[in-house]
Structure formats: C-alpha cells, structure tokens
Write a protein that binds this DNA or RNA. Structure first.
Lengths: 218, 218
DNA sequence: TTCTGTGAATTGTTTCACAGCC
DNA sequence: GGCTGTGAAACAATTCACAGAA
C-alpha cells in the first residue's frame, strides 16, 4: 500500500530495480517473475517482493510482473515522472564526468547549469552546457527552480559552496567532496565517498587472505 | 575486542572516522572526546563509541581519545598499514578523475596501472601514470600483486572487464559502471552508483514539498 | 566529576514459509 | 501448479542509560 512510509533500505534499492527493468526492456522482455527480476538486480527474490509490496500490489499471482507497468510505478514512486533541474558545481574531471554521465541528464534529471569558480574556464562547453560563474548560482536556482545541487569541488571549497546552495534555496545536495557538510535539519545531504569504498574493499580483502606483511588473522 | 567480526555498518563508517581524525590532526588537535569526533564525522556519539568498541578499547575514560593513536588503530584495522596496488580500467572522464583523486593514490593505495581499450590513448600520461592496453591486465596483476580492480568503463564493457580481472586473480572490484556484475562467491564487488544517489535524493525531495505537477502526497 | 565502554531496550531489515489468487 | 504478497521469526543496527575507570 502506498500511504505507508517506505523503508530507507527499500528506497535505496528502487533505482537498482529500475535499471534492471530497463535492461529487461532493452532485451524485449515484457514480463518477468520476481526471481528473474531479482537476479537482474542482484538481490534475492524475497527481498524484492517485500520491497515492491511497500509500493503496492503491481504483480499478478501465478504470473509475475509486467515490466513496463512496474517500471512506470517505480519511476512515479521515486518521483522521476516529474522534472528535476540540477546544478553541478566544480567542473574538474569529476564534474566533467558527471555532466556527461547519462544518469544525470535523463530520466527526470536535467542539468541546467555547470558552475566553476575558475574564470579561465567560463564559457567552455561541457556536455552541451556552458561553464558559468559560481556567482550566478542564486539567479539560476530561482530561474529554473533547481531543487538538487551537486558538489564536485575540492574538499576545501565544499562547505562554502553548500552554504551558498542552501542560501539560494536548494534543499537536496549530492556531495562528492571528501568532507562532512554541516547543514540545517531540513536539508538532505547524500555523500558519495570514492575512497571510503576502496577502504571497505581493502578491509574485506585483508580478512580473506592473511597477507604476507601483516599480522596473522585468527 | 578485536577477535569478533566487526559489523558491516561499522566497517562502512571507519573510513569516515579516519577522515575526521585526519582533519582534526590538520588543525593540530591531538586529543578529542567521542562527542567532538562524532560531530566531525557527522554521526552521534553513542554510535561512534559503539563502533569503536568493536575494535578495542582505545580511549581513556574521563578524558577521550588520542587522535594520532586512534587514527593508527583504525588504519590498521582497515588494512591501510599495508600496500594495496590498484588498477583502473576505463580512462574516460571518470577514470581520469579517479586517477587524480587523492584517496586513490595515498593511504595504502597505489595506482599501478591505467588501462583502456582505446589504442589512440595508449601512452598518454594521467596523474603521472601512462595509459596502457587492457590486454596487459594479466601481466600487470601478476607483476604487482594487484588485489583490487576499479571499473570505470561504460556499462556495456563492464562485465567483460570484470571477467578478465577475475581471470587475472583479482578478487575485489569497485564498479562505477551502472550495471550489475555477476561474479563467483569469493569475489567482492562494491558498486558506486552515481545516478542511484540522485534518485534517492529526488525521492526525499518529492516527499518534502508536494510539487505542483505531481499527485498530492498524503 | 568527566567521559568511555557496554549491556539492555528499541528500532529497522532480511529471511522464512505459506495463504491466497491467477 | 505457479508465483505474488505478507505475517511471523530471525537477525542486525541504533539508541538509551548507566556502571566504572581516570
């Protein structure tokens, strides 16, 4: 049923299901079981069914799910059936990669501006969008109704950029800078920490095979 | 105490604590309470103390933690006191950004090779490392004892790259391509999904403020 | 007294197993 | 018969609240 609040763990997996459904559609598969979709999404089928049950009852017992229909329902639930204008601040290699990344300019998202403090790069075109001055942030946010800001600056600039975003009215921030941002309660920050992920892998790798130079793991 | 297995949620936060400790050291702060460190890391102090209690008893009651000492203990626990040679495959904008990213070439990690299938880019220097042919993967892995591979290719190439990595002996993979990888049980894959993060933000943003064009949220 | 370390209580998530519908 | 949707059970993570060390 829709009225209930969807668990956070489920919300985090909805984008994965959406991608799996898209790839099934690419293969002209119009219908699938929870088992098939779960495999495509890399989870087990019980979890998938429980997750979907939080959105509503969109499958058919004994049959499975209609791929197109389920995709629409999940899209709607996430909010991708509406338009989300996004600004990216910090157009180094990472900002460049993000601007070109398909997930950032499709399916509900639209990059409306690329901002950088470095004057020498202003006017340069990246992914069909000119780099503009960071000072234009407020005006751009008002003009396009931007609700989501992406920070791809060095860590040293991130808090100041974030403060400006909030002053401009942005309340959802995706932070790629390796630093904790402090924000008011009503602002939502998600942090993508590239080096944390490497470190987590290293931790597990270390447990798997006791390494030559390290202590012996019990 | 160390012998017990550390909870996954705790492992995922250790890198955050490590960064917080580094930034305290940068400010010449040599000692801190759980409250201060928790604030710097963006968590609450009860969680921080519980997390640290899984590693051992490295604080002093009534006083707090020695920043340098705790940093060393966490580093050791994660495995950053040993050397982790890394290969990055796919040197587009994202691979470029990763190669230049400080977290990828410091604190235990060392990028030993950048590989790309595009011949025209071979020999090009990125972050002080030449781009080499993907076919050299096996040899490089053997030569340097690479245990961690990073995939920054388009989704269409990711599974093939992953298969080659596994054939070469890599058992920990960090995947930036937006696709699920299928791997044997003993291989550890972590997926960093840039567009999922945006979608999760959109979901919450949608709940915050019922938008003009969408359905009314109850 | 101050602040850590930790059992106990709470809250959240995953898995199980099967009732109910196609 | 086959497969979804879901209570109930098992497991994991977080928060509480305080005993105990410095």
């Amino acid at each position: 049923m829709s009225p209930t609040r969807i668990p956070e763990a489920t919300v985090a997996r909805l984008p994965v299901y959406l991608r799996a459904l898209n790839s099934l559609l690419d293969s002209d598969i119009r219908s699938c079981s929870s088992e098939e979709l779960a495999t495509a999404a890399g989870v087990n089928s019980a979890k998938l069914r429980k997750d979907l049950s939080h959105l509503g009852s969109y499958g058919t017992r004994g049959v499975g799910y209609d791929v197109e229909y389920l995709r629409y329902q999940i899209s709607r639930e996430i909010g991708l059936t509406q338009d989300w204008p996004v600004v990216i601040v910090g157009i180094g290699n990472l900002g460049h990669a993000l601007a070109n990344f398909s997930g950032f300019s499709s399916r509900g998202f639209r990059t409306v501006a690329l901002l950088d403090a470095d004057e020498s790069r202003h006017g340069e075109m990246v992914a069909g969008c000119p780099i503009r001055d960071f000072g234009e942030l407020g005006q751009i946010v008002r003009e396009h109704g931007v609700a989501i800001g992406v920070i791809a600056t060095p860590a040293s600039a991130a808090q100041a950029v974030c403060d400006q975003m909030i002053a401009a009215g942005i309340r959802s921030v995706l932070n790629f800078a390796p630093t904790v941002l402090s924000v008011p309660e009503d602002v939502d920050v998600r942090m993508v920490d590239l080096s944390s992920e490497l470190q987590i892998l290293a931790y597990h790798e270390q447990r798997k095979a006791p390494h030559v130079d390290g202590e012996v793991v019990a």
